[in-house]
Design a protein around this nucleic acid. Structure first.
Length: 326
DNA sequence: CATCAGGGCCCTG
DNA sequence: CAGGGCCCTGAT
């Protein structure tokens, strides 16, 4: 399929709240690689579909932790209007948590025996979700009950069949599809892409968006309990996917009520030095997180998690390799 | 070659 | 509320 060249460039500067750590925020080594983004130190490329318009984004680090500045380049097919750009920049600011104030978190835990040193290493890091709620749901579905490699394959197949291939700034990436783009796909067509029984979830979640049953903008301003209920009401979305979405999409930094078995084994080793064959009970882990890190359980765990996966990038972490199924 | 479990979830009893 | 089944794939 011919890629769509995005040739119109618009440049902006974004000033995140300090402290802001560019690379640890704009790249998450624990996320599976997908064709909608690319990264090298100081630069993240990310495609985006906003109001039906395919875009190529490039974020460049142009500042420091305490005087942050991000140069944002936006490529598109046609010139973008001011109203569109204002809305886009607001959405990007929200998704990338550029306005998140970490002062309280840092002050509370600077002296914490376990979290303090981690914050020292990653001061200014924040969680990242570049995707819409719908896109994140698709990612969550391909994650379920699959090894990383298989998740990558499924997402690649979906991108190639329903996404928009684009080129900009020397990158060849895909823009993820919108619900409408895939609404006509039959379960059989999806199964041909080897997504297995997830075909049904993809169809039913897509239908929930096309029909307007779920609306991200509305849901964003609802209370956590209602968001959770709306997510769990979607076919194919259970507690694990809901947890990720409440943390990452809806930015609940204190949300931490579910730990899946593979994460349980990793946390058990990390926090209690327990072997994978004999992990700490989930209730015990949750009690520990609540006791130690409230009201930032989700954010605190993110710091530990990223610390671990960045360490793994730098050098093998033997016990971890067995616990992450590639 | 067969068997199995995987970065869950739904459905049944 | 515990447990079987589900698509497919790589590991054993």
């Amino acid at each position: 399929m011919n890629a769509l060249p995005l040739t119109v460039l618009c440049e902006r500067e974004v000033v995140p709240t300090a402290p802001f750590l560019f690379d640890a925020t704009l790249h998450k080594p624990d996320h599976f690689p997908s064709a909608d983004n690319a990264w090298e130190p100081g630069i993240r490329w990310q495609t985006m579909l906003w109001q039906g318009v395919p875009l190529g984004l490039k974020f460049e680090n142009a500042g420091g932790v305490d005087a942050p500045l991000v140069r944002l380049s936006i490529w598109s097919e046609e010139v973008l209007g001011h109203v569109f750009l204002d809305g886009l920049l607001a959405e990007i600011g929200c998704r990338y948590s550029f306005a998140l104030d970490l002062a309280d978190f840092n002050a509370r835990f600077a002296s914490h025996p376990r979290l303090g040193p981690v914050i020292d290493r990653w001061r200014g890091m924040r969680p990242l979700n570049c995707n819409s709620l719908y896109e994140y749901l698709m990612i969550a579905i391909v994650l379920q009950n699959a090894t990383v490699r298989r998740s990558v394959q499924m997402m690649q197949a979906l991108d190639e069949n329903y996404g928009i291939p684009v080129t900009y700034d020397g990158q060849a990436l895909y823009v993820m599809w919108a619900p409408e783009d895939i609404a006509g796909a039959t379960e059989q067509e999806l199964r041909a892409l080897k997504v297995g029984y997830r075909a049904k979830s993809i169809r039913r979640v897509t239908e929930a968006f096309v029909s307007g049953q779920v609306d991200e903008r509305t849901l964003r301003h609802r209370p956590l309990a209602e968001q959770r209920q709306a997510l769990l009401g979607l076919y194919g979305v259970g507690p694990a996917s809901a947890e990720y979405i409440l943390d990452d999409v809806f930015h609940h930094l204190d949300e931490m009520v579910h730990i899946s078995p593979w994460e349980q084994r990793i946390y058990s080793r990390l926090f209690f030095d327990r072997e994978p064959e004999d992990p700490a009970p989930v209730a015990e882990l949750l009690a520990y997180f609540n006791d130690q890190f409230s009201p930032y359980q989700g954010l605190a765990v993110h710091y530990f998690w990223e610390d671990l996966f960045w360490r793994r990038r730098a050098e093998p972490v033997p016990w971890l390799e067995k616990l992450i199924r590639l």
